[in-house]
Design a protein around this nucleic acid. Structure first.
Length: 824
DNA sequence: CAGCCAACTGAACAC
DNA sequence: CAGTTGGCTG
C-alpha cells in the first residue's frame, strides 16, 4: 500500500539515519538523491517517487531495463509509468500492454491503475503472459487450425494425452510419461518443434520423445485443445508465419511493459521481441535476477543480461533503495544472496533502523515446529499485529498440512494460499470436463474422463473399441459415438449406453448454448451430468464433502457472473480502438478463468494468517514472516543436493538461494527461521542438518536471548548450527510436546545410529498410530454421531485407517473408519 | 466385461 | 501419502 512512499525526509535527516548504521557493513549508496525539481515536486505522478524511479517513469520511447531489487517500489514504477504515458504523453490506454506472471500481480496492477487513472485504467491491457496468449490465440484461432472454443489442457490432461501418444507410437520401454512431458515442455519453452529437437542416433529416449511430441501435437489439435506451452508457442509461430497479423498487434500494443522479467522463458522473450521490433521498441522490462525462481519452468534469467544486447541503446535504471524492510532483514538477505556467483551486483539499502533481531526456532519434530510457529503467531497477535500481517512460508506444499493442524489446534484464523488446489479435486475436474465437453465436444481427454463418471456401465473395453474405431475413421470420440452401431465388437447393450451418453453430451451442449449466465450453465450441466446424484446416493462422508465442493463450484460460477456483469465479455470485438475483447459466452469466459487462474476461494482473506509456499510468496509482503523447514534437503530442496545419485547441482542450489532471498525480503519487521530435528516427509523419517542458508546469516543479526526465542544460534561450520541456550516457550498443555534442551550437535550418522540402537529397528516412530481392531462383519457398533449400527462389510483401507461399511437404522449405509467405532 | 481391491511407485515450485 | 496399475470376482 503506501508503505513504499519514501519519507519526505530531508537530506540531513537521511544522513543522520545512515550514520547510525555504521559498523553493519552498509554501503551507503544514497549519494545522488535529487535536489527537487519543480516538476517532480508538483506532479502527483512523480512526487511520491525517488530520483531513480522518476527516471524510469519519465523515460521516453525506446527500450528500458529497470533492475529493481525487492521492495524497491517496482510495481509503483510500472503503474506510474503507465499513468505517465496515458496522462502526460497522450497514449491511448488500449495501446498499452502490461504483462505480469501471476494473476495476483495482474489483479493488483489493474487495481492500482484504476486508482491512478480512473476508468481509463481499466482500458489498459493487463494480464499474465498465458492469459494474454490465450486471448490473442483465440482471436486468431482459425489461422493455427483451432476453433476459438479450444480448450486449455492442464498438467494432468496433458499427461493423459501423452500416455495416449506414447501408446500409439509404440513407446513403452521404461520411459515415464512424466519424463516425456518434461521434455516436451522444455522444448516448447524454447520454441522448439519436434523436428527442432536435436537427437543423436543413439539417443533412443530423445528419438522417442520426438515422435511422441509430434503425435501429441496432432492429438491436441484434433481435440481442439492446447496446453499451457502452446498458448505462447503457437502465437510465436503464428506471428512468424503471418507478418500482417503481427503488424496488427504491433500497432495495437505500442507500449509494452513486463513485470518480473527475470522469469521469462525463451518463448516469452521471443514473443516480446516480435511484438517490439528493435527499431521502435517501446519495451520496458522490470526485473531482478536475484528473484529468478522459475528455472524449472524454463525461465532464463540471462534474458536480463541479454536485454541490453538485444535492444541496443536501452536505458538501464537500477533501483536499490528498499522501502519495505528493516535493515537487519536486508542484511540477512544480502548475506544469503551474495554467495551466488554470476549475479548483477546490487545491494538493497534503507534508512530504516536495524529493527528487531531475527530469530530461530528449533523444534524436535515437524509437529512441534508447527506448534511453535502457531504459539509465536498468537503471541504476535496479542501484541497487536493483525493476523493478515503474519505469514508462514514453506518450501513444499506437503509441509502445509502440519501447519494447518497446528493453526486449527490453536484456534488461529488462517488461509492457505494455494494455486489451484480447489480445481485439482477429482469431482471439480469431472465437472469442469463436462463443461468443456459441452463447449467443445471434440475434446477427447474430457470425454474419456467422464464417459463413465458416474458409472454408466461403459468400461475400458468398450472405450478401447470406440477409440480404435475413431482412430481408423479419423473421428473424434464424440463423433464416433454417433456411429456406435458400426464399431466392431460392441454388443447391443454397449451400443445403447454409448448412444445414451452421446445424447447426454448433446443435451449439455444445448444447455451451454442456451444459458445466458455462467452460473446457470454450470448448475444445469453439473445437475444433468448425474455427478451430484451419484454422490448423494453414495451416502458417505467423503461423498457429502464432494457434493459440497460441487455446490461451491456452482457458487463460484454465479459469483463470476456477479463480478462480470452479464454481457460484458460478449460481442464487441475486432475494433482497433478500445480494449481487446473477445466474443465469448459467459460460460466460456468462466472456463478460461478456471484454466488460467485456478484460485477459487474468494473468501475474504483479511484477518487471517497466510500460509503459502515460498514461490507463492513472491511479490507479497508481511510485517512478520516465518520461514519453516530450514533444513538441508527440505530447503535447499533435496533435488538441488543431488541425493544418492550425483552431487550438488550448482544451478539448482543457486535457485534455492534466490528462493531464500525472496522469502527473507517479504518481511517488513520480524523474521523467524524455524526447523525441526527430525521430520516425517512423504511418509519417512528424516534427520536433516540445519539449512546452510542459516549458517550464512551473520550471527549478530540474531536475537541473543529474548524471552520469545526458543534458541539462539551461532555460526559454525556451514550447515551446522550450534545452540547455546533456550528459554521456555509457552505452548499450553499440549501432551507429548517437549522443547529440546539442546540441539544435538553430533553428525547425522551418529544420531541415526543411536536411534537405531534404541529402537532395534530403524527409526520409524513417526506415524505410529495405534493399531485398531477392525470390527468383524455382523458386529454391533456404536458411532459417536450416527449412533448404533451393524457392520455389513469391509470397506477397504489398511492399518489405522481401515474402514467398514456400517448400516445405521434410518440413515442407511455409511463408510466409517473403524477406529471411530466402539463395539457394543 | 465392469467394478473392486491390493500392491506398487514415486513424490517441487505453478501458468 | 496419493494416484495408477494389475489381478480377481460377480
Amino acid at each position: 500500500m503506501d508503505r513504499q512512499r519514501p519519507n519526505p525526509a530531508s537530506r540531513a535527516a537521511r544522513a543522520e539515519a545512515l550514520s547510525g548504521r555504521e559498523g553493519l557493513g552498509y554501503v551507503a549508496r544514497v549519494t545522488e538523491e535529487p535536489t527537487a525539481q519543480s516538476e517532480a515536486e508538483t506532479d502527483p505522478l512523480l512526487a511520491p517517487l525517488n530520483e531513480h524511479q522518476r527516471q524510469a517513469v519519465k523515460h521516453g520511447d525506446g527500450p528500458l531495463l529497470v533492475l529493481a531489487g525487492a521492495g524497491s517500489g517496482k510495481t509503483r514504477v510500472i503503474t506510474h509509468r503507465v499513468a505517465w504515458l496515458v496522462e502526460r504523453r497522450g497514449v491511448a490506454p488500449w495501446h498499452i500492454l502490461a504483462v505480469t506472471f501471476t494473476n495476483k500481480a495482474a489483479g493488483e496492477m489493474r487495481e492500482r491503475l484504476e486508482r491512478l487513472l480512473g476508468p481509463a485504467g481499466a482500458e489498459v491491457q493487463v494480464s499474465t503472459f498465458h492469459a494474454a496468449g490465450a486471448t490473442l490465440l483465440r482471436r486468431e484461432a482459425e489461422r493455427v487450425g483451432l476453433t476459438r472454443s479450444f480448450v486449455i489442457y492442464d498438467d494432468s490432461d496433458q499427461l493423459q494425452l501423452i500416455r495416449r501418444a506414447m501408446k500409439e507410437e509404440g513407446v513403452f520401454e521404461d520411459i515415464k510419461p512424466k519424463t516425456v512431458r518434461q521434455r516436451i515442455d522444455d522444448a516448447k519453452n524454447r520454441a522448439w518443434l519436434p523436428e527442432d529437437l536435436a537427437v543423436g542416433t543413439h539417443d533412443r529416449v530423445g528419438q522417442a520423445v520426438r515422435r511422441v511430441y509430434a503425435r501429441y501435437q496432432r492429438l491436441l489439435r484434433a481435440a481442439n485443445a492446447v496446453d499451457f506451452g502452446d498458448l505462447l508457442l503457437e502465437l510465436v509461430l503464428l506471428f512468424k508465419r503471418h507478418p500482417d497479423v503481427l503488424e496488427r498487434y504491433r500497432r495495437r500494443f505500442e507500449y509494452v511493459l513486463v513485470d518480473e522479467f527475470q522469469d521469462t522463458n525463451p518463448v516469452q522473450y521471443e514473443l516480446l521481441k516480435l511484438l517490439c521490433p528493435k527499431s521502435r521498441a517501446n519495451l520496458c522490462v522490470v526485473g531482478d535476477d536475484d528473484q529468478s525462481i522459475y528455472r524449472w519452468r524454463g525461465a532464463d534469467p540471462s534474458n536480463i543480461l541479454s536485454f541490453e544486447r538485444d535492444f541496443p541503446g536501452a536505458e538501464t535504471v537500477k533501483l536499490e533503495r528498499n522501502y519495505r524492510s528493516d535493515a537487519g532483514i536486508l542484511d540477512a538477505a544480502y548475506a544469503v544472496i551474495s554467495k551466488n556467483a554470476r549475479r548483477k551486483e546490487k545491494r538493497l539499502w534503507t534508512d530504516r533502523p536495524k529493527g528487531e533481531p531475527l530469530r530461530i526456532l528449533f523444534a524436535p519434530d515437524e509437529r512441534a515446529e508447527a506448534q511453535l510457529v502457531a504459539a509465536q503467531a498468537r503471541e504476535l497477535a496479542s501484541q497487536g499485529v493483525p493476523y493478515s500481517e503474519i505469514a508462514i512460508f514453506y518450501r513444499v506444499n506437503a509441509q502445509s498440512r502440519v501447519v494447518e493442524e497446528a493453526m486449527r489446534l490453536s484456534g488461529l484464523p488462517y488461509r492457505v494460499v494455494r494455486g489451484r488446489a480447489f480445481y485439482e479435486r477429482a469431482e471439480i475436474k469431472d465437472a469442469a470436463a463436462y463443461l468443456r465437453l459441452a463447449v467443445n465436444p471434440r475434446s477427447d481427454a474430457d470425454l474419456e474422463r467422464v464417459i463413465n463418471t458416474p458409472a454408466r456401465g461403459i468400461g475400458a473395453t468398450t472405450i478401447e473399441r470406440l477409440r480404435g474405431f475413431a482412430q481408423s475413421e479419423e473421428l473424434s470420440l464424440y463423433e464416433a459415438l454417433a456411429h456406435a452401431g458400426h464399431v466392431p465388437g460392441l454388443n447391443a447393450g454397449a451400443q445403447r449406453r454409448l448412444r445414451a451418453f452421446r445424447d447426454l453430451v448433446d443435451a449439455l451442449s444445448s444447455e451451454a448454448a442456451a444459458a445466458g449466465e455462467a452460473g446457470t450453465a454450470v448448475e444445469r450441466i453439473v445437475e444433468k451430468s448425474g455427478l451430484i446424484a451419484a454422490l448423494v446416493a453414495e451416502q458417505t462422508k467423503e461423498a457429502d464433502e464432494r457434493t459440497e465442493n460441487l455446490r461451491e463450484f456452482i457458487g463460484a460460477a454465479f459469483e463470476y457472473d456477479r463480478l462480470h456483469a452479464a454481457g460484458e465479455l460478449v460481442g464487441a470485438e475486432g475494433s482497433e480502438e478500445g480494449p481487446l475483447k473477445l466474443a465469448q459466452t459467459p460460460l466460456e469466459a468462466f472456463l478460461e478463468q478456471i484454466s488460467l487462474v485456478g484460485d477459487a476461494d474468494s473468501e475474504d482473506d483479511s484477518g487471517r494468517v497466510s500460509l503459502m509456499t515460498l514461490h507463492a510468496a513472491k511479490g507479497l509482503e508481511f510485517d512478520a514472516v516465518f520461514m519453516t523447514g530450514m533444513e538441508e534437503s527440505v530447503f535447499p530442496h533435496s533435488r538441488a543436493l543431488g541425493g544418492e545419485s550425483g552431487g550438488v547441482d550448482p544451478e539448482e542450489l543457486a535457485e534455492e538461494r534466490r528462493l531464500c532471498y525472496v522469502g527473507i525480503t517479504r518481511a517488513r519487521r520480524r523474521l523467524w527461521f524455524t526447523l525441526a530435528q527430525q521430520r516425517a516427509l512423504f511418509g519417512n523419517l528424516q534427520l536433516n542438518d540445519p539449512s546452510r542458508f542459516l549458517a550464512d546469516v551473520p550471527r549478530e543479526l540474531f536475537d541473543l536471548g529474548a524471552p520469545a526465542a526458543a534458541v539462539q544460534a551461532e555460526r559454525h561450520e556451514p550447515g551446522e548450527l550450534y545452540v547455546e541456550r533456550e528459554d521456555e516457550v509457552d505452548l499450553g498443555d499440549d501432551d507429548g510436546f517437549v522443547v529440546t534442551d539442546e540441539f544435538d550437535q553430533r553428525p547425522e550418522w551418529e544420531r541415526r545410529r543411536e536411534l537405531e540402537r534404541k529402537a532395534e529397528k530403524p527409526p520409524e516412530p513417526l506415524r505410529r498410530r495405534p493399531e485398531v481392531a477392525v470390527p468383524t462383519v455382523g458386529a454391533r457398533v456404536r458411532h459417536e454421531q450416527f449412533g448404533d449400527g451393524l457392520v455389513v462389510g469391509s470397506a477397504g483401507g489398511g492399518g489405522p485407517n481401515a474402514s467398514v461399511r456400517v448400516r445405521f437404522p434410518g440413515l442407511g449405509e455409511r463408510k466409517i473408519v473403524a477406529r471411530f467405532l466402539k463395539p457394543l
